[in-house]
């Protein structure tokens, strides 16, 4: 029965999230939609970087491949979404393979820099190669949306977060997850134990690419527009990284938590600090959290819950 209680937890999470739109305004629901997308991107990044230790600075490259593929197919060829979105995800898997190639030879700082180059390359390519097809520097606007309105988009994106989160949780709690964690700690030891590090890396990179591809394709059809400066941007990359690290990397719940925290923090500060000052506050909070607990919010809340549990239990026992 080790699965039963955590599965109940996931179920309760789904039920609560499904009820959220009943209690909050559509403005808040819109914020949650962006939080859901960020959660998907952060989970995707965490599969490569949090689990295997291969720090990716090029994740927008993977997200952008899917986004541009489905955007161009629907915008220029009127391809139905049920075809263009899988095509986008497939294109990202091909891109994920490209990502893997440098990881066969290098790691650490060098790998991070190569992935950053992928993002920059994609930024340039969308503008230089066939700008009439990619929309050049201005991108494409008027891309069809899957559903319209805050609440349908919320349920759609939460459905994706839930399915991806649960799927990753299932997979990563198996021996594969343990092997990936071992890869981060000592790749040589994993190889010496008879496991194929290449296969393990391929698995992590493909899983990450698939998640990024799904997120990217749906993201573009949510926005209704795509622009190179919006996707292949260092700020976008940092937002993904901060969400994963602030929430707690190497966990499934951490990146989701980080994404929700980050998005809500910035949006709730907006009425009080409409200008760039809110980014200073966000930076300071992120810094304080990370200095206090490098394992992120997930660990802070778990520690808090662990300390609170005996106190609550004692109160229940007391007459």
């Amino acid at each position: 029965m080790p699965l039963a209680r955590p599965l109940l937890g996931w179920l309760a999470f789904a039920v609560v999230m499904c009820l959220v739109p009943v209690f909050v305004s559509t403005g808040t629901v819109r914020i949650l939609v962006f939080a859901n997308f960020l959660a998907i991107f952060a989970m995707s990044w965490d599969v490569i970087s949090g689990r295997t230790g291969y720090i990716s600075f090029g994740h927008p490259f993977l997200i952008g491949i899917a986004g541009y593929t489905t955007a161009m197919l629907t915008y220029h060829l009127d391809t139905p979404l049920w075809l263009s979105i899988p095509a986008g995800v497939f294109a990202t898997l091909v891109g994920g393979t490209l990502f893997l190639l440098p990881a066969l030879r290098i790691r650490g700082t060098y790998f991070a820099l190569v992935t950053l180059a992928f993002m920059e390359l994609m930024y340039q390519l969308t503008q230089v190669i066939a700008p009439k097809v990619t929309g050049g520097t201005r991108g494409l606007s008027g891309i069809p949306t899957i559903v319209s309105g805050a609440i349908p988009n919320y349920y759609l994106t939460f459905g994706l977060v839930f399915a991806i989160g649960l799927g990753l949780w299932f997979v990563l709690r198996t021996r594969i997850g343990a092997a990936l964690a071992a890869l981060r700690m000592d790749e040589g030891a994993v190889a010496a134990s008879g496991l194929s590090t290449i296969r393990l890396k391929l698995f992590a990179f493909m899983t990450s690419a698939a998640v990024a591809g799904i997120g990217g394709a749906f993201y573009v059809h949510y926005l209704g527009s795509i622009a190179p400066r919006g996707l292949f941007d260092i700020n976008f990359l940092f937002t993904i990284l901060v969400a994963a690290l602030l929430g707690g990397s190497s966990t499934v719940a951490g990146p989701i938590l980080g994404a929700y925290f980050l998005t809500f923090l910035l949006e709730y500060l907006r009425p009080y600090l409409p200008g760039p000052e809110r980014y200073v506050i966000y930076g300071m909070i992120a810094l304080v959290v990370y200095v206090l607990e490098p394992r992120g919010l997930h660990a802070i809340l778990r520690t808090g819950a662990r300390r609170l549990a005996p106190l609550l239990a004692r109160r229940r026992i007391a007459p």
């Binding site: 080790p2 209680r5 955590p6 937890g9 996931w10 309760a12 999470f13 609560v16 999230m17 959220v20 209690f23 909050v24 305004s25 403005g27 808040t28 966990t251 719940a253 989701i256 938590l257 929700y260 925290f261 809500f264 709730y268 919010l297 997930h298 802070i300 809340l301 778990r302 808090g304 819950a305 662990r306």
Partner: peptide, 24 residues
Amino acid sequence: RTDRALAPLFAALAIGVAASLAHD
């Protein structure tokens, strides 16, 4: 430990919803 894995999510969600209600 596994049981508590999702506890942070619920805590964060409760804070988020409370903040939303105040905000709205």
